[in-house]
């Protein structure tokens, strides 16, 4: 059998990516394995993260050597991650739709190119810059303006009631993340809107639709699956964002957020912030538990992308059946 050489080379190259993915998961999994054995399922549902007494003699629990009193629960970080990402998407999706529609429908020519370039440029700003901006600008703004305003306007909802705090917290983290994912969603959606077939738009105009109605009734429905895909892409970024969140989230430990101003910690930010102290654990269990957080984060991202893929496949299949 003759297998063309180019094809062999390309197949090998293409195989690198799924293999790398698998290798990362296997490495993380095996490194975290002692922690997975020790923590059990309680890892996901317990609130308390306690390194234990690092100076006492370690004890053996469930076959694993751990510091006395050590307990690793990450519910707080899971909640912080999901809630801050949810807030980010809630803010970013409508804003991105607005930007994408503006860029395709309201401006044209050079101005569109220029503004689109600026939007894409925002996606390339290092996250630490967003974090610093959040720290210097957003935190005082949330503490003194946005927070009090939300409390007085929406205080009848428990989420918005209570102490506004210092500005470090869920809302600020969500705002910074929103800003970071807007360019991703907006530019993807802009490309999709530009590719809505002209006959489809003309069909709506010919029926007596106004410009606004063409956008609302024809163009936006036509890019639904692109919107889902773009949002998931943005969600992926938000879930994994580390530095910017760490700088504005307030670093909550052992404590679930009770309103939108509460300090939180996300999984990614926690791994970064706790690595140093975890390394002081002579049994190594703390670091292995951090690795277990990474496994969980990895799996959540994988799950999110899988769900997005399924949603997109479903919409695509529906329209393909239609054409057949």
């Amino acid at each position: 059998m003759k297998f063309p050489r180019v094809q062999t080379v390309l197949t090998v190259i293409a195989a690198v990516i799924p293999l790398a993915l698998l290798a990362i998961l296997l490495f993380l999994g095996s490194y975290a394995w002692p922690a997975i054995r020790f923590n059990g399922l309680g890892f996901l549902f317990k609130l308390t993260w306690n390194l234990g007494n690092l100076y006492a003699n370690p004890v053996t629990v469930a076959g694993q050597v751990v510091p006395r009193g050590a307990q690793y629960g990450i519910l707080v970080f899971i909640a912080g991650t999901l809630l801050s990402s949810a807030i980010a998407l809630l803010l970013a999706v409508p804003l991105s739709i607005g930007i994408a529609v503006f860029l395709t429908e309201a401006v044209g020519g050079t101005l569109r190119e220029l503004l689109s370039f600026v939007v894409e440029l925002l996606a390339g700003v290092p996250s630490v810059v967003y974090g610093l901006w959040g720290y210097a600008v957003l935190i005082p703004l949330v503490a003194h303006q946005i927070g009090p305003f939300l409390r007085s306007a929406l205080g009848f909802l428990p989420v918005f009631a209570g102490s506004v705090g210092s500005g470090y917290g869920l809302l600020t983290a969500g705002l910074v993340l929103a800003l970071m994912v807007v360019p991703i969603i907006a530019s993807t959606l802009r490309d999709a809107l530009l590719h809505v077939p002209i006959p489809l738009k003309e069909g709506a105009y010919a029926l007596g639709a106004t410009h606004h109605e063409v956008v609302r009734e024809v163009m936006l429905p036509a890019v639904r699956s692109n919107l889902v895909a773009a949002s998931i892409l943005g969600l992926g970024r938000a879930l994994g964002e580390t530095m910017a969140v760490l700088m504005v989230s307030g670093g909550a430990l052992n404590y679930l957020p009770h309103n939108i101003y509460s300090p939180v910690t996300t999984m990614a930010a926690f791994i970064l912030s706790q690595l140093d102290s975890a390394l002081t654990d002579p049994t190594g269990m703390a670091v292995r538990s951090l690795a277990e957080i990474a496994v969980v984060l990895f799996l959540i991202s994988l799950l999110v992308n899988l769900v997005a893929r399924l949603l997109i496949w479903q919409t695509e299949r529906r329209s393909r059946v239609a054409h057949g």
Partner: peptide, 10 residues
């Protein structure tokens, strides 16, 4: 139009 252009999402 020349090619049928029903609204695909409706």
């Amino acid at each position: 139009f020349q090619k049928p252009n029903p609204f695909p999402t409706m």
